[in-house]
Design a protein around this nucleic acid. Sequence first.
DNA 1: AACTTATGTTAGCATCACTAACTTGGCAAG
DNA 2: CTTGCCAAGTTAGTGATGCTAACATAAGTT
Lengths: 205, 205
Amino acid sequence: MTDGPIKDMPRKGNYHHGELREALIAAARQLVIERGAEHFSLADACRVAGVSTAAPYRHFRDKDEILEEIAARGFDLMAQRSMEAVMAHGPGSIEGIIAMGLAYVRFATQETAIFRLMFGQNPTLKEAVAVRDQGHACFSGVIAQVEAYCARHGVEGDARVIAVKLWTFVHGAACLVIDGEYDVVAPGLDVTAMITAAAPGLLRG
Amino acid sequence: MTDGPIKDMPRKGNYHHGELREALIAAARQLVIERGAEHFSLADACRVAGVSTAAPYRHFRDKDEILEEIAARGFDLMAQRSMEAVMAHGPGSIEGIIAMGLAYVRFATQETAIFRLMFGQNPTLKEAVAVRDQGHACFSGVIAQVEAYCARHGVEGDARVIAVKLWTFVHGAACLVIDGEYDVVAPGLDVTAMITAAAPGLLRG
DNA sequence: AACTTATGTTAGCATCACTAACTTGGCAAG
DNA sequence: CTTGCCAAGTTAGTGATGCTAACATAAGTT
């Protein structure tokens, strides 16, 4: 085997890959998206990256650490999408808050496998500091927006509690949409309309 | 190895177990509860039941079919708990509706691993007819109760949509509680109080 | 008593996560 | 330039797993 790897993600002909860590994360992320986290094998990611199955252990503690990284970045992306959504409608406005909620559900439907990885799948994942920190940062942003809304519109009651109520509803919607539960129980349900309609009520103290 | 299995769940000395299917389901369920569905191995269930690792394939298509059975029975148990909760407070009453919601969250916290198995974990699980059917039956019961409430209290609007809204909120709460998300973002949050407070608003058309 | 069938067993395969021991090659010190 | 270090690859191997094939046993039917 004198010539480099034949297919997939060829390295530059070097013995040393150079950016294996990032390459493995990219490959793993793609495989998780394609097959779901529970059907993801580290060995497959190695084949895609064009390295031996022992190579990842120079960069990651174990298989879970790769998934942790992907989950943490998922929260990062989610925070980004949420912020884009509020900003488009003006921070502190109810339209902004609703847009944020819709962005949450949209993230779940577009990045379903990542969303599943981020929430609940593997309980040990959530204990990783990186995941917890990014998750915390993501929701702190959401809560800050709701607090801004409450302050501006003179809503009495704990803004944090109101934010959590809204988040709870939106998270429930996201989970049930991607699990296809609505299709079974209430086929044809317009989730966007439901959230838009429910938001004002939830925002009242 | 002339003497029978030494420990765990010994059979009655017979070559044929007699009730292997149920014994395996019981063992698997217990292991899922103890270690979580993603760390559950069929081989372990076999050891607990005291049979060879090939034995399950006389009763189940594959590993997933055991999990399907457990998930389906989970929905069954959930429906039972929900119904008990409403009935205790009188069907059609708002107390009954709230009790049902609280029972939902309680189920999630008490049977966390089963709840996780029932929702989202393995997308292929949800496609199993048994799981879909039991899930449908479970939520149909919930929706029927909300419809009864709406009819009795003259709430305008589609009762089914209202039921779905309520379900969405409660499901979100259940997921976030078991994932420990509330602890991170809003430590000390009283989930029961939150649901009780939010229910009337969600029940208005 | 002989046949059939359901339900067990052993043996074995391919895959996987992970480890140990060796190899490579880039870089810094002399 | 050479030397030697060491980060980051490799090969080879272990034990566990899901699942299959071929065989064995018991229990009922004819």
